[in-house]
C-alpha cells in the first residue's frame, strides 16, 4: 500500500442553471410533474429566478418615479394606523397571557420543536464495537455536540464478550456519565454494544450496517451538518484522505506500516493547532485521535500529544 490517494475537485461538465427558451410553435400542455391543481411549482423550472429579480427592480423604479402621487400620504397614514392597531393587539394578548400565567416559554418551545422535528427522523443509532478497539471518537463527538444535541449513550455488553477490558470500561463510564452543559436539548439515543466485532465497528440505523469507525463518523457528520460537516470545506479531499489514513491505521497489523501512517498525521499537523493547518477541530482530527489512542497510544508524544490534548479539550 502506497498510502491513500488524494482527491481533487473538478469543474462540473454540464451546467444546469442556464435559462431555457421554450419553442412557441407547439401548443402547451400541463406539466404532469407539477402539483395536481395545475399550478406549476416554480422549483421545477430552471429560469424563474431572473424574472423575480426584474420585478423587484421594476417596483423600485416605479416607487422612485411616483414619489409625488396624491394618494401616497394617505396610504402611509393608513399603514401607520394598521401597525398601531397590531401593536395594541399584541399588548392585549400579552396582558391576557399574564393574567393566565403563561410564561413566554412558548416562543422558545417552537424553535426547539423545529430542531427536534429534524432529529426525530433519525432512528435509534446502534453501534457494535469491539472491546479491544474502543471508539474514542464518540466521546469527542459527544462533547462537540453538547451545545446543540444531547447525545445520550448507553452501553451494553454482549454475551460473546465475557470480560470487558479496562480501556473499554473507562470509555463506557465516560460516555454514559456525560452530561451536556445545557439542559432541555433534543436528545439522540445511541446504544453502544461491546460485541465480538474486530477493528471495524458497525453503526446501524436500519438493518444494513455502516462498517468502520471512520465511515460512522462520515455518517454522523452528515447528520449534524453545522458542527462536523466537512463536505463544503475547501479541503474536503484532504480531510477525506486523512480519514482513510485513520482507517488504515486501525486495520493494519504491521508496526512499520503504522509508523508510516502516523507520519501522515505529523506532516499534516505541522505547526498548526489542528490537522491540515486548521484553527478549528474537524472530523479528521476526531478520527485520527481515536485511531491513535486505539492502536498506537505509545506514539502519542511531542507535538502529537499537545494536539491530542487540544482535541480532547475542544
Amino acid at each position: 500500500m502506497n498510502g491513500p490517494i488524494k482527491m481533487y475537485q473538478t469543474k462540473p461538465i454540464v451546467r444546469h442553471d442556464v435559462p431555457v427558451q421554450l419553442p412557441t410553435c407547439m401548443y402547451k400542455i400541463k406539466n404532469i410533474y407539477g402539483p395536481r391543481n395545475g399550478e406549476v411549482d416554480p422549483a421545477d423550472h430552471v429560469s424563474t429566478a431572473n424574472k423575480k429579480l426584474d420585478i423587484s427592480e421594476q417596483v423600485k423604479k416605479f416607487l422612485k418615479n411616483n414619489q409625488k402621487i396624491p394618494g401616497m400620504a394617505d396610504l402611509q397614514a393608513r399603514q401607520e394606523k394598521i401597525l398601531q392597531q397590531l401593536a395594541d393587539l399584541k399588548k392585549q394578548m400579552l396582558n391576557i397571557k399574564a393574567e393566565l400565567k403563561i410564561s413566554n416559554v412558548t416562543t422558545n418551545k417552537t424553535t426547539l420543536k423545529i430542531s427536534t422535528q429534524k432529529i426525530e427522523d433519525l432512528p435509534n443509532i446502534v453501534i457494535h464495537a469491539g472491546p479491544n478497539y474502543p471508539p474514542y471518537s464518540l466521546a469527542l463527538v459527544q462533547k462537540l455536540l453538547q451545545d446543540q444535541i444531547n447525545l445520550s449513550i448507553t452501553t451494553h455488553q454482549h454475551s460473546s464478550v465475557p470480560l470487558l477490558p479496562k480501556n473499554a470500561k473507562e470509555l463506557s463510564d465516560i460516555l454514559t456519565n456525560f452530561k451536556p452543559k445545557a439542559s432541555n436539548l433534543p436528545t439522540i439515543y445511541v446504544r453502544l454494544i461491546w460485541n465480538n466485532v474486530e477493528a471495524d465497528m458497525e453503526l446501524l440505523v436500519s438493518i444494513v450496517p455502516i462498517l468502520g469507525e471512520v465511515n460512522a463518523l462520515r455518517y454522523l457528520s452528515r447528520c449534524f451538518t453545522n458542527v462536523l460537516s466537512y463536505e463544503y470545506d475547501s479541503d474536503v479531499s484532504e480531510i477525506d484522505s486523512l480519514l482513510d489514513v485513520s482507517h488504515a491505521l486501525i486495520s493494519t497489523k504491521s508496526t512499520p506500516e503504522k509508523t508510516k501512517l502516523i507520519q501522515h498525521f505529523i506532516k499534516s499537523l505541522g505547526k498548526s493547532s489542528y490537522l491540515i493547518g486548521k484553527t478549528k477541530i474537524t472530523v479528521a482530527d476526531i478520527a485520527a485521535v481515536s485511531a491513535l489512542k486505539q492502536v498506537a497510544p505509545s506514539s502519542i508524544n511531542g507535538s502529537l500529544s499537545q494536539w491530542v490534548k487540544r482535541c480532547e479539550a475542544a
Partner: peptide
Amino acid sequence: EPFSFLEPPLVLQYPDARK
C-alpha cells in the same frame, strides 16, 4: 446458534417496536 444477550438487557418501548 448460541443464545446471545446484552448486559444490561435491551429495553424497547412499545411505540419503538411498532416503528
